[in-house]
Simulated assay, not measured.
Amino acid sequence: MTDRWLSVEQIAAYLGVSKDTIYAWREKKCLPAHRVGRFWKFKTDEVDDWVRSGSAAEGDAHD
C-alpha cells in the first residue's frame, strides 16, 4: 500500500522543501497534518490535494 504515513523529514523530501518550511506551512498555511504522540505525520494524498488547491502559494490569504 502506497498511502502510508510520512514523517516531517519524509514529507519535506517528497515536496523538495526544508523541515522548517513544513512546520511553517503546518502552522500558517494549514498544511494537513496529524499528531501521533509527539510526532507529526502526513498522508501524501492529503498533501497533494492541499498543494493542488494553491494553498502553498506565496502570498496566500492564510498568511
Rank of each mutant, 00 (worst) to 15 (best):
M1L: 14
M1A: 15
T2H: 10
D3N: 14
D3T: 14
D3S: 14
D3Q: 10
R4T: 11
R4V: 13
R4W: 00
W5D: 13
L6W: 06
L6S: 12
L6H: 14
L6K: 15
S7V: 02
V8F: 02
E9Q: 13
E9P: 09
E9T: 13
E9M: 09
Q10H: 04
Q10T: 08
I11R: 02
A13G: 15
Y14N: 02
Y14G: 05
L15D: 02
G16E: 06
G16K: 04
V17Q: 00
S18N: 09
S18F: 01
K19Q: 14
D20I: 04
D20P: 07
D20G: 09
D20S: 03
I22M: 05
I22R: 07
I22Q: 02
I22S: 08
Y23N: 09
A24N: 08
A24C: 00
A24E: 09
W25Q: 03
W25E: 00
E27H: 04
K28D: 06
K28R: 11
C30M: 06
C30V: 01
C30K: 14
L31A: 06
L31G: 05
L31E: 00
A33E: 08
A33R: 03
H34R: 14
H34V: 15
H34P: 03
R35S: 06
R35F: 02
R35A: 04
G37R: 00
G37E: 07
G37L: 00
F39A: 11
F39T: 06
F39H: 12
W40G: 01
W40C: 08
W40A: 01
K41F: 00
K41T: 13
F42M: 02
F42Y: 11
K43N: 12
K43V: 11
T44V: 12
T44D: 02
D45R: 12
D45G: 01
D45C: 09
E46A: 15
E46S: 10
E46F: 03
E46G: 00
E46T: 08
V47E: 01
D48N: 15
D48T: 12
D48R: 08
W50K: 09
W50H: 15
W50R: 06
W50Q: 05
V51H: 01
V51E: 08
V51K: 12
R52A: 09
S53W: 01
G54L: 10
G54V: 09
G54E: 10
S55W: 08
S55V: 04
S55E: 14
A56C: 15
A56T: 10
A57C: 14
A57I: 08
A57L: 13
A57V: 14
E58Y: 08
E58F: 04
G59H: 01
G59L: 10
A61I: 11
A61N: 04
A61T: 01
H62F: 09
H62W: 11
H62M: 12
H62K: 03
H62Q: 03
H62L: 03
D63W: 00
D63L: 13
D63K: 03
